[in-house]
Simulated assay, not measured.
Amino acid sequence: MTVFADRWTDRLRSGFPLLAAMQVRLIGDAGAWQLHAPFDPNRNDHATAFGGSLSTLATIAGWLYVNEAAGETLDPDLIDVVIQTGNAHFVTPLQADLVARVMPVDDAELAVFHRTLARRGRARLTVHATVGDGKTEAVRFTGQYVAVRLPQSPQ
């Protein structure tokens, strides 16, 4: 694993007990990454991937993307990112390990996000993600996230 992958895998698993139970891990580096979760702990009673696991993985992939984007503008330790709205469209059942990918956000949209975050200390970004087995798409997800600059504690 890369330092980037190790750092995020540790943060996800320690910060979100559900993700530890799902055995989520990040594969890749800052330039190209995916979230993975093995099928077995994420299956349902129909021997397909559990919808809650699929939507959770997509939601977290978007959250991570926005954290990384916000960290380009502000100190990552002074940012809080939360999901505001999310919509998962379940396309087809999945009977394999889960792989989540975020579609790159348009450069112009990212520029607005960065300017707004720098100026106001708060900005929204909509991201699109898919979850599947790496070849077949099982879920299409759209989420709007809010990044907020945290108050700095006195030194």
Rank of each mutant, 00 (worst) to 15 (best):
M1F: 12
F4C: 01
A5E: 03
A5M: 02
D10K: 12
R11F: 15
R11Y: 10
L12W: 07
L12F: 07
R13K: 11
R13A: 15
R13C: 15
G15I: 12
G15H: 15
A21K: 10
A21E: 12
L26D: 07
I27M: 13
G28M: 14
A32M: 07
A32W: 01
W33R: 03
H36N: 12
N42A: 01
R43G: 09
N44P: 00
H46E: 13
H46M: 13
H46C: 12
T48D: 13
T48V: 15
A49W: 04
A49K: 03
G52T: 06
L54R: 06
A61G: 00
G62F: 06
Y65N: 11
A69C: 14
E72I: 00
T73K: 08
T73M: 08
P76W: 09
P76S: 08
L78I: 15
D80R: 09
V81P: 05
V82P: 05
V82N: 01
P93N: 02
P93A: 05
L98Y: 01
V99K: 04
A100F: 07
D107H: 03
A108T: 15
A111L: 07
A111E: 13
V112M: 02
H114A: 06
R115C: 14
T116D: 08
T116Y: 08
A123W: 00
A123F: 04
A123V: 07
G132I: 07
K135A: 15
K135D: 14
A138L: 07
T142P: 11
G143Y: 02
Y145M: 09
A147P: 03
A147F: 00
V148I: 11
R149C: 04
R149K: 06
P151I: 01
S153L: 15
S153I: 14
